Computed example of a mutant assay.
Amino acid sequence: MRERISARGYENYLGHFNLTLGLHDALATAGGARIVSLSSSGHLFSPVVFDDIHFERRPYEEWAAYGQSKTGNVLLAVGAAERWADDGITANAVMPGGIRTGLQRHQEGNTTPEVTEAFANFTWKTVEEGAATSVLVAASPLLEGVTGRYFEDCNEAELNTDPNPYADSGVRPYALDTDNAKRLWDLGTAMLHS
């Protein structure tokens, strides 16, 4: 992976945040709308590092950046769940799973030995298997009113406190932390208005 920063100098969480904010009124009008924020087990690599979110004072490390952006996508769902419940909007994050698509061309040849080994031993999903969790969270009546959670393999994920960043399941507590969600929401709002 190569560094991908916007023209304003931001990592990719901000686009998801801006789109979600822009859709708020339509979602509220729809009644019972659901936000499905796509994340990844890559969130296990890093929390959002609020003291240096743009890698200005620390070396850029692509897997930390990827992890931070995927943690941001979980926190986006947690933040929307907190703020927009009274509007009838639910928001959850999902880990669709590793699906062999053209996206991997950005990773192959640019990884550490640990990541290369993890990819070699990874159980890849079909496109249909990868879409299943997103479809469940978006449409199942079983999840009516369920909000601010993280799902994988068509189930709510368990908390993962294993320090191994290559663990392939569960959700880190920092990704579901409401204080982190509020802080990132406030930071995202400030960045959009700067």
Rank of each mutant, 00 (worst) to 15 (best):
A167E: 12
G148L: 06
V36N: 06
M95W: 09
V49M: 09
N92Y: 03
G88V: 03
G102D: 15
G79A: 15
L75T: 12
T20N: 02
N110L: 11
Y150P: 00
L187A: 13
Q104L: 11
R83V: 06
L44P: 00
V135F: 05
Y60H: 03
T189M: 13
T29G: 09
S46R: 02
F50M: 01
A181F: 03
V94E: 03
Y174I: 04
L76N: 02
N73Q: 07
R149S: 09
L19G: 03
L184V: 04
S169K: 04
D51N: 10
N110F: 11
G109Q: 11
S194A: 10
G79E: 04
A77F: 07
V49C: 08
S140A: 10
T123L: 05
P163T: 07
Y166A: 13
P96L: 15
V135E: 01
M95A: 12
A85T: 06
I89R: 05
G97V: 04
D25Y: 07
T112K: 05
A77L: 07
T20M: 05
N12R: 12
N18C: 14
Q104C: 01
H16I: 04
A131V: 04
L75G: 14
L14P: 12
V146W: 12
T161F: 06
S134P: 06
V49D: 11
T189S: 10
S6I: 05
E152Q: 11
G15K: 06
G109A: 09
D87I: 04
K125V: 00
Y166D: 13
T112P: 13
R8L: 06
G97W: 03
A26L: 12
G67F: 05
P96S: 14
D162L: 03
F50E: 00
D168C: 05
D86H: 14
D162Q: 03
K70C: 03
Y150V: 00
V115F: 13
E144S: 11
P113A: 06
E62W: 12
G88A: 07
L38A: 01
L176H: 13
S194H: 06
Y66D: 15
Y174L: 10
Y10P: 01
G130M: 06
G79L: 08
W63R: 14
V135N: 01
Y150W: 01
N164P: 06
T116A: 13
L142F: 04
T189P: 01
T29I: 03
W124T: 03
G97P: 02
I35L: 15
T112G: 12
L187D: 07
A81Q: 08
L187Y: 14
L21P: 13
L142M: 10
L23E: 09
Y60P: 06
I35K: 05
G148H: 05
N180L: 03
T101R: 11
W185S: 03
H193I: 04
F55N: 06
S41G: 11
A33N: 07
D168K: 11
A26Q: 09
S169A: 08
K182I: 06
Y10E: 14
A7E: 15
